[in-house]
Design a protein around this nucleic acid. Structure first.
Lengths: 162, 162
DNA sequence: TATAAAAACGATAACCATTCTCATTTTAAA
DNA sequence: TTTAAAATGAGAATGGTTATCGTTTTTATA
């Protein structure tokens, strides 16, 4: 995975952006937390561990830059903060999420589920699709188990008190 | 459509929320602009025409209340403001949008396109789906026409100058 | 109809994620 | 090494949204 950083650095260089320690540290943090849907604040705190002198504004600027370079995707789950996901390398963007309304866990699902829907949209609505976001809100399997368990113990307690 | 307001009023009453002129005016505005994906500010300005004494905070409170009552859906296109859509009555939620990256126009698409995808998610990911959001970002048919036109005139201009 | 408690209101201050400003530092190429 | 352009950090500014608080309105009851 070391090459991943190198390739991103190369990409910066090719587009004549400067290579700074702050940018490198930010990319490192994103790589080390690839599954975590970090907010700018999250990234800031993590980068600060490596490079304590970094400013929050720089983190925002770097994330914005990486978004423009299509290295990260800026996503929004409606909770008031933007989150930044590293794109799967080479592959398509990753905009399909399962957000658990119980515990807040965010899972990802396979990318090709929408191919058919996209075709219909392009044809029926004469709409040239460039990108898409699909988010399901619901209850993840862990919380389904938890809820079931709680219901059972509540039932047991009710038996005791009656 | 007059009954629509009455039913929402009834719903408020049943859940022992008070019926105020501000709430009624807000619902009226939402009904009269059903296709427009209004922001809170938009609603505020429109309600002010009917009831100039209303405050912005009340509009926010009312929209939040209507969202909890599932009369409106609070949606987010990633442009920094929440928008509020009246739900199609009785029917399911309306969370499928086409957002044009050229002109910002927002169109809606039919609701049943995701039924199959939802089934797969519930089965393969053991995820109980409660709600979903699907947004395509791309170029609407009007802007496709516009872009084509611009390219043609640019070509013509280039011919002249050569 | 009068009354009183709870709910809702308007104005505006507070909040907070994000962006902007600006003086200083760093980068990269000659 | 020099230099101009780019990037940085600190913190002020912005803007959408929420909280506060004293006043007004609603609704249930007498």
């Amino acid at each position: 995975m070391e090459n991943r950083v190198e390739r991103i650095k190369k990409q910066l260089h090719e587009q004549s952006y400067k290579l700074t320690p702050q940018r490198e540290a930010t990319v490192q943090v994103l790589l080390e937390n690839e599954e975590d849907h970090l907010s700018a604040e999250d990234v800031y705190l993590l980068v600060k561990e490596k490079a304590p002198e970094i400013g929050l504004a720089t983190v925002y600027r770097t994330l914005e830059l990486l978004n423009e370079l299509e290295v990260v995707d800026k996503i929004n789950f409606g909770d008031g903060v933007s989150r930044y996901d590293l794109r799967k390398e080479g592959a398509s963007h990753s905009h399909h999420h399962l957000v658990c309304i119980e515990c807040g866990a965010v899972d990802e699902i396979q990318e090709d589920l929408l191919a058919e829907v996209e075709k219909i949209v392009e044809k029926d609505y004469q709409f040239k699709v460039k990108d898409h976001r699909l988010t399901f809100h619901g209850v993840c399997h862990r919380c389904q188990a938890k809820v079931k368990k709680n219901e059972e113990s509540a039932e047991a307690a009710s038996l005791h008190t009656n």
